[in-house]
Amino acid sequence: MITNSHKIDIIHAQGLNAGAIGVVLKAIFKKRLIVSLHAVYKQIGKSKLTSRATRLIFNNAEIVLGMSKAVINQFAQLETGKSNLEKYRYWIDVNKFKPMDQEEARNKIGVKNCFTVLFVGRLIQIKGVKLLIDIARELEYIQFIFIGAGPMKNTLQKFSKELPNVYFLGQAENSKMAVYYNSADIFCIPSLYEEGLGGVAMESIACCTPVVGSNQ
């Protein structure tokens, strides 16, 4: 960004942590700042420090975008002195994400033609990855496909070798995601925290694959 700052008009920060960095970059490079919020933050409002930091981000942003009613309701309670909080939605390319033959999809990615549960996301504890592995251990007749990257990558690689019904396929190109959604009978979001309305859920629905999420 230092060498190409003259080509940049807007800084778009995804989340509060990135928003804090965005405030610093805005001050240095004199650019406009937009912040997108994807989830509910449990720590907000629990301390004066986090509340002040959040207000600082809001007051420095041109606009703050919340992707669900839960996000909007949480941050609307903060007295930021600036009414710049707006709701937005993900959009889905229905020409790319659409139904296809399930058996054909499974053949393309090299998995068995049996009942399949799919997980796509960051491989971290709060996403419920370990919970889904424990379920896979109990349901040997169902295959579980994990796609993503993160700190639990090695754990998944280990279990994919130990459990014959667990497939860890690493990261996948977005252009190929429709095949993975169509290979599954269920797309699972087992998060252990309150999620926003994720784009992956909408992509799965566009492929006519049902979504099952945790009650968080």
Results as ranks from 00 to 15, higher is better:
Asn4Thr: 10
His6Asn: 09
Lys7Thr: 08
Asp9Tyr: 06
Ala13Phe: 10
Gln14Asp: 02
Gln14Trp: 11
Leu16Arg: 12
Ala20Arg: 13
Ala20Trp: 11
Val24Asn: 04
Lys31Phe: 14
Leu37Lys: 11
His38Ser: 11
Val40Gly: 03
Val40Ala: 12
Tyr41Asp: 09
Tyr41Glu: 05
Gln43Trp: 13
Ile44Lys: 00
Lys46Gly: 15
Lys48Met: 13
Leu49Arg: 11
Arg52Pro: 10
Ala53Gln: 08
Thr54Gln: 05
Ile57Asp: 01
Phe58Arg: 03
Asn59His: 09
Leu65Gln: 01
Gly66His: 14
Ser68Met: 13
Lys69Asn: 14
Val71Tyr: 13
Val71His: 14
Ile72Cys: 14
Phe75Ala: 07
Glu79Ser: 10
Glu79Met: 09
Glu86Leu: 15
Glu86Pro: 01
Lys87Asn: 09
Tyr90Asp: 03
Asp93Gly: 01
Val94Ala: 05
Asn95Ala: 02
Phe97Pro: 01
Pro99Asp: 00
Met100Thr: 06
Met100Cys: 05
Gln102Phe: 09
Glu103Ile: 11
Ala105Ser: 13
Arg106Ala: 01
Asn107Val: 09
Ile109Leu: 12
Gly110Met: 13
Val111Cys: 07
Val111Gly: 06
Asn113Gln: 07
Asn113Asp: 09
Cys114Met: 12
Phe115Gln: 04
Val117Gln: 07
Arg122Asp: 07
Ile124Leu: 03
Gln125Trp: 14
Ile126Val: 10
Ile126Gln: 15
Ile126Asp: 15
Lys127Phe: 04
Asp134Cys: 06
Ile135Cys: 05
Glu140Cys: 08
Tyr141Cys: 03
Phe144Thr: 02
Ile147Pro: 01
Gly148Ile: 01
Asn154Lys: 04
Leu156Ser: 01
Phe159Asp: 02
Ser160Arg: 02
Lys161Leu: 01
Lys161Ser: 02
Glu162His: 09
Pro164Trp: 13
Tyr167Asp: 00
Tyr167Phe: 15
Phe168Met: 00
Leu169Cys: 00
Gly170Asp: 03
Ala178Leu: 07
Tyr181Met: 01
Ala184Arg: 09
Asp185Tyr: 11
Ile189Lys: 08
Pro190Tyr: 11
Tyr193Pro: 00
Glu194Lys: 14
Glu195Val: 11
Gly199Met: 15
Ala201Val: 06
Glu203Phe: 04
Ile205Lys: 05
Cys208Arg: 15
Pro210Cys: 06
Val211Thr: 10
Val212Pro: 02
Ser214Val: 07
